[in-house]
Amino acid sequence: MTDISLPVLPTTVIGSYPRPAWLRKVLRLWKTGKFDKEQVEEALNDAVISVLSDQVEAGIDIPSDGEQRRDEMVEYFAERIGGFKFYDPIRIWGNAYYRKPAVYAPLEYRGSIVVREFMFLKSVCNKPVKVTVTGPYTIADWSFNEYYSSKEELTFELAKIINREMKALEEAGAPYVQIDEPALSTHPDELDWAIEAINMAVNNVRIKIGMHVCYGDYSKIIPYLEKLRVSQLALEFANRGFKDIGIVKKMPEDKELGFGVIDVHNKKIETTDEVYYAIKRMIEIFPARRLYINPDCGLKMLPRKIAKEKMRIMVEATRKIRGEVKDDGPVIKIP
């Protein structure tokens, strides 16, 4: 494989995308025994093709599979790693719930978790793609720990497992993996070992690795970025009205920024101008050659039509500003 050249300000998604209404129905009926596993698999594959087509039509340069097979980012991993169990769902905001897992026994890697997702996506997409992997710290932080003596011990056990998954993805040919660590900024006193655990999760993996963090105080993470062995940090900014964007000036020069320009928890569609001016503000303080454009977070909570339109606006605004930027786009190196 050859290296992948991207346009300046490449557009991408953070990961999740709304499931088509018909898929939600199939999954509901599956639970009542009205579909078999094979039929559900077919529906999931078709859903990936559908949401991929939404992203491609919107003009996204680096799409994902919209995490169509995942109900929730921690839940999905916990269901596939030995040692987890589930209680009834808990609320996360408004009326959004998730099944928070509990660790009740030693963790065990039972084989690849998302490689199959990547392989299918690769088979139906001729663009560079992004695969998302929930990070060890966030899995630990968003789980109940009933077994390990400390959260730190649990996190490092998870890091070993995630590292095996990352290596499996590299072997399968994934060019770009994003580690999702939304919990990272929530306990600053744990950052020392949390960063070490993330580094363990990406140890000896030679593909492009980004990390996504959202809804927190980024100033707590910035001092640790030098140590962190990922090349990109994707951050949410639209939700907070682009209030703290100056913080990116403190990012080390070897790190790219994934700039969140679309609010994923608000059905109001941004205007092209709003997104354009947000990017313009950003490139005044951060080099365009190290900048990717993405929504704040996964889009799955939005109605599908709105998600697609938000993507289209994001791409339109990005294309508008590309003409004003002289830098070359980034290159994804293939090992």
Binding site: R91, W93, P182, A183, T186, Y215, G216, R240
Partner: peptide, 13 residues
């Protein structure tokens, strides 16, 4: 917008 409620995976408007 949604903000994290203190250090929880729970968010408030």
């Amino acid at each position: 917008g949604l903000y994290r409620f203190l250090d929880n995976n729970f968010y408030y408007r």
